[in-house]
Design a binder for these strands. Structure first.
Lengths: 140, 140
DNA sequence: AGATTATCTGTAGAGTTGTTCAGACGTTAA
DNA sequence: TTAACGTCTGAACAACTCTACAGATAATCT
């Protein structure tokens, strides 16, 4: 935060070239100390990765409205039933969705309120008012 | 769209097999009508995709604290400077980050408050208190 | 001018991911 | 029992993504 170095790089050892080049060493150290653990960072990336496919996004948006069976999800999203099943398996692993089985039917629903919030936030970002909750001021 | 069926599949035409199978046709129609446009869904998936790589997540977490130059970002995140540059180019496209150039230095900062919120929300999801804003009750 | 620095870019290869097809499994109906 | 149904799974293939290396560019310094 104090960041005394502004425009001139501060080489730790002017002669040695194995040192990492830094401009604001103080800030680097501060940010590094606040950086979450590797496992947390990768977990976070995994969650976002699950939301990085249009098909899975459609499935999750559909599930925002309540539980649905696989064939209805396929009809809603335009994916094949096999595709929906594959997608749901990925989402089941990290417990983003959960299943309720009734006979040969499988009813899926959202299992994670954070994912619901991520979806809502993302939808407002993209311009689609959607679920009209999480209304917040945009100081973009 | 009468679709009062609950557990028994309602074949539109008992003889024809080219029809999509539905269980709750009414709900399918309702959800389909609320489904965002294709462009919005893919845009959303693209944004989440940008957050689906640990390296980019680290870069963005670092930028939560304020602007940084490329070499400091490399030192902070452990990525190569080339890797950071490639990552920043991806993030520059959809205006997730923005550049301020001063001489030969390039100072990057977050350009999108929604992405900041997505990151904060994701960090709380993963258990890392992090930026201690966006504190909300978890009814998981 | 030439050398050095910070950043950017193109390319190639390994690795991962999404989709489709074919068939498996367990459940229900005839 | 046999048949139909809903869902799940494995394998194969194209498409995409990440990483590293080499080199390009533009700014600064000697």
């Amino acid at each position: 935060m104090t960041g005394t170095a502004q425009a001139a790089p501060t080489p730790s050892q002017p002669g040695s070239d194995c040192a990492v080049r830094l401009v604001d060493a103080e800030k680097v150290e501060a940010v590094r100390s606040r950086m979450p653990a590797d496992t947390d960072v990768t977990d976070l990336a995994v969650i976002f990765g699950l939301l990085s496919d249009p098909g899975r996004v459609r499935i999750l948006i559909a599930l925002l409205e309540g539980e649905m069976c696989v064939c209805d999800l396929a009809a809603t999203t335009g994916l094949s039933e096999s595709g929906v099943s594959h997608a749901l398996r990925l989402l089941r692993g990290p417990r983003v969705v959960q299943v309720r089985r009734a006979g040969r039917m499988a009813y899926y629903s959202l299992a994670d309120s954070h994912v619901r919030m991520l979806l809502d936030l993302g939808l407002t970002h993209v311009g689609h008012a959607g679920q009209d909750r999480l209304k917040m001021v945009s100081n973009n």
